[in-house]
Amino acid sequence: MQSRANGKQRPNSPNIQIYRPQLTSVLSIANRASGIVLSLGAVGLVFWLVAAANGPEAYTYTQLLLASSPGQIGLLLFVFAFFFHLCGGLRHLAWDAGLGFDLAAIYRSGWAVVAASALLTALSWLVSLVMRS
């Protein structure tokens, strides 16, 4: 990306594409990406509430949409993005409180976020399947 400083085309710093991806940088951008995905989910939440307000037919139609294969894949993505953003957010709140700043702790909490969001997604999906059967 180029910016116009002093009327000239100058490169922006840092040129992130020259860096090797690391857990820290990948989780940082993934936290933002999951937030953006979740805001789309929030639009879906409003759509769903409006459908409920419109009565049984509109509500049943959205339920059918959610139960379809693309709907289920979308829901799974939203649930994972939710747990990822939640766990990543808790990690950020801990940092704001001044906790867990040494490099070893940062890597431990980073992998914990990855593992916890995967586990919680699988667990909630399983519970939902049990509730439906």
Binding site: L45, V46, L49, V50, A52, A53
Partner: peptide
């Protein structure tokens, strides 16, 4: 969203 909840 809020209006939809109240309307429901």
């Amino acid at each position: 969203g809020c209006i939809a909840v109240v309307y429901t």
